[in-house]
Design a protein around this nucleic acid. Structure first.
Lengths: 360, 360
DNA sequence: TTGTATGCGTTATCAC
DNA sequence: GTGATAACGCATACAA
């Protein structure tokens, strides 16, 4: 259990190089840290040769231990199967590269236990900061970070009781634009479909913004539908019920004088998915029950713009995911360097992508 | 640049705990490493209290430095936007958890430079081993690993000139099953669509297996189409040309006596996508040019089973992704522990998922 | 310009 | 049972 790994041969150390070059460790260290000016050309050449011969690579762990900083930052991702997360990650990686950090990517896979465990792990590895796309359960599991602990930046959602910078979508603006779009397209029943939202700030914000936006359009019938994506049975049940209501809405239209053909080809019901995973669940279910023609029954709009949305012709609000990740690292960088401003929120604008799913 | 981070307060060290508990560092270390039996109950209690009071957490870096092993393994992923990679990752994470490793996830984002850079970085962090889903360019960039370097396990594809374990799909069997499926469904023109495959072993194997399988069915017209997903213009051009050929095939059928309606509703041309990204590109392009009805023109089958495949009704070969990741870590674990068997290949079977895209 | 000595936080060796 | 003390690989204050 505690024996050194036998798989790989021992690597050369700074002492080996010093010996090989016939000098002291200090000069090697200087060479490594770019203090070239203080080295005589000959010594420098000998060191270069020794390093080459021994294929020496400085041990970052030892380096970090000595320096008190290891240039490591943690990136805690709630769910990598969500394209949103991967896109944010790309921004994070780019910024890390630019700023000289190495991101330690941890995937909680929607498990609270994992989240806690990784946070703990990151702490023991002494990362200089963390970017966390939290599951959003309780601040308790996030205790080690933020405020008194290690610098942290939240992504997409804030966590109650935890003071830290946050960067994410301008939900208010995004939802307002999306809602107006649906109303202008003539949908007069708009159902906002969202996962349980009490504990996840971004969902809560979107839901609230939706109802606020609707006050502008008294002729529109709007409501919130909560779906739980985790439980397949419950999900199927909810979606089936939702589907029945769409039926009823269509029937209602028919009895109010429209021809059934109008009702079939001109849906008046629109589903507003609070995020990509919800949209995918909705689309899969509708597709399964009604075939490829389901878009004639009901419109769909989603926040998040995954690759399949174009394929399926879904209107979306695209988030500036790359920028979100990039900004998050920049914020964290400032914190690590000791900036002491109070917690900031950085809200980035979304972009409406109109596609067939909300055309009439 | 080299000053300690000012963002977070200094953490307690083992010496702090020793002082707080009024004892020596050795006892603390013993406590941490579970050598409880050699500690008197009182000392043990004092240590426990001190740790609690100081919120002490051992520094893994220092630990690794001293022990000569840090329980870190690198996971180098070629492309996280490919759901395949994320699924493999889940298996890797699970196995790491079970075996007590911490995976350092590195995302090359299809950039050779990144691949090389991360490999270098992982080396300097002294990971005990690496799992690499290589870009497949040259063995040169992978020099530090495998054979003489640190233990490595390849995923999905092997790299010429690099001796290391490999775990991936049984491409031969998978392609054979898929091809037979298409032929049995009555498609007599089957076009295998693949990215440039010379340098990527899994693609090469699939392409070869396809032609080998076709020798069983002389009545079927099969060929390989190469598409380059990276370059949008070139891709559009290739797909447009491909599309024109489908037109020609349909026209050809019409002149051979079938009614045009038959030709429209009963496609005889099938596209066999070598992987998920290719399938998505094909579907997007066809959808864009012919609308949601494109499946009446041409059939589609793909290796890889991303979430959207069910939504779009695409027949696929699902890879045992989770198992691939899990096995890879198990292999690596054996290597790290010093097992010296020669390089092994582990080929796991795929599963045919029949959907509407290949029905008639 | 170059080298020596000390310490980062931990574990291992050896005394007591 | 318990506790000094010496490494681990590196960086740095200081000396030469």
């Amino acid at each position: 259990m505690n024996t050194p790994p036998s798989g790989a041969p021992r690597r050369a150390t700074i002492s080996d190089v010093a010996r090989e070059a016939g000098t002291g460790k200090t000069s090697i260290s200087r060479y490594l840290n770019g203090e070239l000016s203080v080295l005589s050309p000959q010594l420098r050449a000998r060191i270069e040769a020794a390093i080459e011969r021994l294929d020496y690579q400085p041990n970052q762990m030892a380096r970090g231990l000595k320096r008190g900083r290891n240039r490591l930052i943690g990136m805690l991702v709630a769910d990598l199967t969500n394209p949103y997360s991967v896109e944010v990650l790309q921004g994070v990686e780019a910024a890390c590269h630019a700023l000289g950090y190495m991101p330690l990517i941890c995937h909680a896979a929607n498990e609270v236990d994992m989240e806690r465990r990784f946070l703990q792990l990151l702490t023991t590895y002494r990362v200089e900061g963390v970017i966390v796309n939290a599951l959003g359960v309780s601040e308790e599991t996030l205790r080690p970070v933020g405020g008194g602990g290690i610098p942290a930046v939240l992504v997409d959602r804030s966590v109650e009781g935890l003071v830290a910078d946050m960067v994410g979508l301008d939900n208010e603006a995004a939802v307002t634009v999306a809602t107006r779009h649906l109303v202008e397209r003539g949908f007069d029943r708009v159902w906002f479909v969202v996962q349980p939202f009490e504990r996840v700030s971004s969902r809560r914000l979107r839901e609230a913004a939706f109802h606020r936006a609707l006050t502008q359009y008294p002729q529109v019938n709007g409501r919130t539908v909560v779906v739980e994506l985790g439980d397949a049975d419950e999900l199927a049940q909810t979606l089936t019920a939702l589907d029945a209501e769409i039926d009823a809405a269509i029937a209602n239209r028919e009895t109010s004088g429209e021809t059934s053909e109008d009702a079939a080809t001109l849906p008046r019901v629109a589903l507003f998915a609070a995020n990509g995973p919800v949209a995918l669940a909705l689309a899969r279910h509708l597709n399964q029950r009604h075939g490829a023609d389901w878009q004639k029954r009901v419109a769909l709009l989603s926040i998040d713009d995954p690759e399949w949305a174009e394929l399926a012709g879904i209107t979306t609000i695209r988030q500036p995911t790359y920028d979100i990740g990039y900004r998050a690292v920049e914020f964290l960088h400032e914190r690590i360097d000791g900036a002491q401003a109070s917690a900031r929120d950085c809200l980035l604008p979304g972009e409406l992508i109109e596609r067939a799913s909300t055309a009439r």
